[in-house]
Design a protein around this nucleic acid. Structure first.
Lengths: 156, 156
DNA sequence: CTGGTTAATGAAAATCATTTCCATTTATTG
DNA sequence: CAATAAATGGAAATGATTTTCATTAACCAG
């Protein structure tokens, strides 16, 4: 069952880096691929466990670090004390989104609005910053913080 | 010696919330006010200690949480495992900046370029998001990640 | 100014996500 | 199939942050 990016799209990337393809890594990538959004390491562990009880939390952390370094996964901090992970999307717009974080209940909403103008702004900013600061920019993060509807009503 | 926002500008905010004005809080705000940028809790502790050895790390954490909740301070995560804090700037452009983070050495550069176009983009995005998701947006965060000049050279 | 009330505090202990250690397993290659 | 080194799991370590609780000190009223 080939995924949206072709059959086992990441095997090539792994082989190219000399990384081995293991059961645990397969399972973790599998979970990330179908994840709705931003899972914590433990979330992933729990989702992997039923089918692969032999995969430990340590491996989850190690694999996530690897994936983040490879750029296949993005790591986020929404302020609740644990990191969250999401599969990086392709370079085009499909799936590209950012986060709206409620500072009160920590709920996170993915939004995909304003992506066009955002992309334009980001493109120019990245080019300018890369040149000015001699930075090789590979990623960006945009988040908005505030209070969600629910929490606002509760306070009132 | 009145600061740039008037004499002890935050006393009013504190009193208004029923918070007490203590030596420790004075010292912490003092350090934050003159900080070049993004100090960790421990950084602040070390800077406060010489003049106020009685202020413990616990108070630093508690005060920072308070200040973040009040919106006087922003909390950042640059991926090195400890939170960083900066005094929030005024609503206008003075001091407004964002961060360029080297994913290799964790060095952080403040940049103030592109603020005008960014502000315009943010304004529109915030308005739209607030309406669409019923969020009361109070803050945003933009960061770019990449590899700094130094680290790139080392790898080569 | 002074005492009473209660927020604020420090020190030590607890938490908890993440990392490290190390002996064992296993993917890969010849 | 055997050799090799990467990958792994489980336990222990780490380290930032939080909690607990007895003590201190801001602030208000008188």
């Amino acid at each position: 069952m080939p995924g949206p990016r072709g059959p086992v799209w990441w095997h090539g990337r792994f082989r190219g880096c000399g990384y081995r393809i293991t059961l645990g890594r397969e399972a973790i990538l599998h979970v990330l691929t179908r994840a709705e959004a931003h899972l914590s390491a433990e979330d992933i562990y729990l989702k992997v466990h039923p089918s692969c009880p032999s995969v430990g939390l340590t491996t989850i952390y190690r694999t996530l670090e690897l994936l983040v370094d490879m750029g296949l996964v993005h790591k986020f901090d929404f302020g609740d004390g644990r990191a969250r992970y999401e599969l990086a999307e392709g370079p085009k717009k499909e799936g590209h989104h950012h986060h709206l974080v409620c500072t009160s209940c920590k709920r996170v909403i993915n939004y995909t609005d304003f992506i066009d103008e955002e992309l334009e702004f980001l493109k120019r900013a990245e080019e300018g910053l890369a040149k000015k600061y001699q930075f090789d920019i590979t990623n960006h993060m945009i988040q908005f913080y505030g209070m969600c509807d629910n929490c606002r009503k509760k306070k009132a």
